[in-house]
């Protein structure tokens, strides 16, 4: 910490401590509330009961499935688009950025109202066409594809930003051209030369999408599906202690998943960003 004034040196731990307290106190209080039952002492009853409660596993698995599908859709959509934008039309970047930020401005309520309207309109007008079956399949309660599509839109602002930051750190054009002059076709150049250097950005985009999907309540509830967040709210009404236990558990699940993702995308020695110095002697 050379070069810092004593004041800064003292402030750093203080700020860190305050922020830590802000996050940890409610968490600790929640944990204490779930394990310390008046008159019975320390018990993990609330947690063991969760496993047995109807809908726990199905809703958790549904949420995980939705998250995986959303991450796939978002990355498949955004990565080629972002790279193409960088190579072919850098001037359009502000436009794409604005479009990708739109979901932040539209409130989920309005968004879900729009989706609801389309879902109602569709079957009424398309009942005699093959599209009718598509609408039915979209809303299959076992795996509501419509939620994946909605979440993909909602994740756009976060995923786009994460990817854009990653792309900024590598010289995409030079990497692609270098790969192409080494005999790689356009797609292979992207997959073998660019993507490995975006590992960090892809991970970040996946993290953010995962966190969003696991915690999303409004859209799922209003469309009548029952992923994990909706289930938590449903059970919490009746059993106070267990509902808090479920919240703590869902936090832990999210953390574990994020750690697992980070582990899977672990750093390789070469995964540092490319130096892209352009000299002008």
């Amino acid at each position: 910490m050379a070069g810092l004034t004593p004041l800064t040196r003292a402030w750093r731990p203080a700020v860190l401590g305050l922020a830590g307290l802000y996050f940890l106190v409610p968490l600790a209080a929640s944990v204490v509330f779930t394990v310390d039952v008046p008159g019975r002492g320390l018990t993990f009853d609330a947690y063991t009961r969760i496993i047995g409660t109807e809908g726990f596993l199905t809703s958790l698995l549904l949420s995980l499935g939705l998250a995986a599908a959303t991450i796939a859709v978002v990355l498949l959509l955004l990565v080629p688009a972002a790279v193409a934008l960088r190579l072919g039309a850098p001037r359009l970047r502000p436009v794409v950025e604005a479009v990708c930020s739109l979901p932040l401005v539209v409130p989920p309520i309005a968004f879900v109202a729009g989706i609801g309207t389309v879902l109602k309109w569709g079957p009424e007008h398309l009942s005699r066409t093959p599209l009718f079956q598509t609408f039915v399949a979209l809303q299959n309660p076992d795996f509501p594809v419509v939620l994946v599509l909605a979440y993909a839109v909602m994740a756009l602002p976060f995923a786009h930003r994460a990817l854009d930051a990653g792309l900024r750190a590598v010289d995409v054009r030079t990497l692609v051209e270098a790969a192409r002059s080494c005999g790689a076709g356009p797609v292979r150049a992207l997959v073998t030369a660019v993507l490995p250097n975006l590992r960090g950005a892809l991970m970040n985009a996946a993290f953010l999408t995962l966190a969003l999907v696991l915690g999303e309540y409004t859209v799922a509830q209003l469309l009548g599906f029952r992923p994990f967040a909706v289930w938590i709210v449903n059970v919490s009404g009746s059993q106070a202690q267990m509902s808090v236990a479920v919240s703590v558990l869902s936090l832990l699940v999210t953390w574990v998943l994020l750690l697992a993702l980070a582990g899977a995308g672990g750093r390789t020695p070469g995964a540092r960003r490319a130096r892209t110095a352009k000299g002008t002697p």
């Binding site: 010289d171 030079t174 490995p196 590992r199 070469g270 995964a271 490319a274 130096r275 892209t276 352009k278």
Partner: peptide, 10 residues
């Protein structure tokens, strides 16, 4: 190339 163009991950 003019700029350093080696693949950073290899």
């Amino acid at each position: 190339f003019q700029s350093y163009s080696l693949f950073p991950h290899l």
